[in-house]
Design a protein around this nucleic acid. Structure first.
Lengths: 230, 230
DNA sequence: TACATATTCTACCGGTGAGTAAGATATCAA
DNA sequence: TTGATATCTTACTCACCGGTAGAATATGTA
């Protein structure tokens, strides 16, 4: 709350006078909106709430955004861009698949610790129009598929144990998404500590030779059909 | 959709005549409500929607529930009860901690594949009143703590590698919670296949001797202060 | 200084949803 | 059969929210 107010202060101050600064003010609105959406949800945050927080009135917001959904769309776009860029960087690396996945885990956690990254995970895309929802889901699916490919690559180069990459990708992504609900940047837990343990544990689950035991035949089976296309 | 209608049919039929059956009808309302809440979210499902689905009118619903929130509270209660019961069963077992955690993973996945279990994860508790939210958060925290204890036990008996049980519990629970978003009971993926791979991978990440490498000093360090209390 | 325009405000509209009042109708038990 | 009561309906209230109309006011510029 105190951290929040402190971060909101500058935005509020930006609107204290009427100096012209469309881009800066637009961005300030967006930052305030994403924080409030994360805190109280998109649906429970009214345009009035956002305006009040910025010390202006509701209609003034419509000077910077055509409607409420445009804010949400833009937030999603900024968030997914961050993830795409990280994946681009990883694709450019020359490493075993397992290490690329490890880099993904670390990078993804860092992104999610920021507002726009966390928004991609936490905000309910059911609030979007049909068109907007379709677009966002597409981008999310692409990200998921790129993670699956990293895992499949690791299986090919022998660094990752045979498994169904679709399920593995869901597990890895899900574990990280969970963070978006409980992680508090101002809390006592150090981000690097979390990353360290997440990487260690998820690597342990993926790597070849972990607990051999299990029914590897099931894995080989799916690796034929389900794997690349997943 | 077709599966949904099929499952909703019986409930609808229950209200076809006015024979007295308060308990049965109340339960039918609840089953319909949880399905619709999961499909369209709590906020976007109106009392009218639920009533229409059951072929009655909105005020009739208020014969079985005092208000909308009472439905949500009851759904949460039924869901968390399922989880508590499972944890009771696991606590009664005599096994290494790692195997108990494995049982938890399997049991939790099965519960989440059902409507009420999934509801605990997916429905936004921000819709609850302050009191209701506090209660639910308490129950969720208890569940989380019980999982942490299972992990800590495994560390004591040597079946689980030293780590911060708080982070480990979040990782395990988060990975499973992710399922609640994408798993479709009528889809092509077999539940047992998913369970098998989840158990294998998460066990691999927890077990002693996975990838030794990592900085185990960090683990020992937290095991002193953060561990039991976490 | 004076004009064009960016910024913001007051006052409103239309729609929706939770919840209620009060009465009609069927069921059950005696 | 009849009365008590459970069940359900029609018609409504109240509050909130997204969005707009149109005017007021400040700003930057020529």
């Amino acid at each position: 709350m105190s951290r929040q107010s402190a971060a909101l202060g500058p935005h509020r101050r930006l609107f204290a006078d009427r100096r012209r600064n469309p881009d800066g003010k637009r961005e300030a609105v967006l930052h305030t909106a994403v924080r409030m959406f994360l805190e109280r949800s998109y649906a429970r945050t009214s345009m009035n709430d956002i305006a009040t927080q910025l010390n202006i009135t509701k209609p003034a917001l419509y000077h910077y955004f055509r409607n409420k959904e445009e804010m949400l769309v833009e937030i999603y776009r900024l968030g997914t861009d961050l993830i795409d860029e990280m994946l681009d960087a990883i694709d450019a690396e020359e490493k075993p698949g397992l290490d690329k996945v490890a880099d993904f885990i670390a990078g993804y956690i860092r992104i999610i610790s920021g507002d726009f990254g966390r928004a991609v995970i936490r905000l309910d895309d059911g609030e979007l129009s049909k068109a907007g929802r379709k677009l966002l889901r597409g981008r999310k699916r692409d990200i998921d598929h790129r993670l699956r490919f990293l895992i499949a690559d690791g299986m090919d180069d022998g660094s990752i144990a045979l498994c169904n990459p679709k399920i593995a990708a869901f597990l890895v992504a899900g574990a990280i998404h969970g963070m978006a609900s409980w992680y508090d940047p101002s809390g006592p837990m150090e981000l690097t500590t979390i990353i360290e343990q997440y990487v260690r544990m998820l690597k342990g689950g993926l790597a070849t030779g972990g607990l051999a035991g299990g029914t590897s035949h099931g894995a080989v089976e799916v690796s034929a059909g389900d794997r690349v296309h997943g």
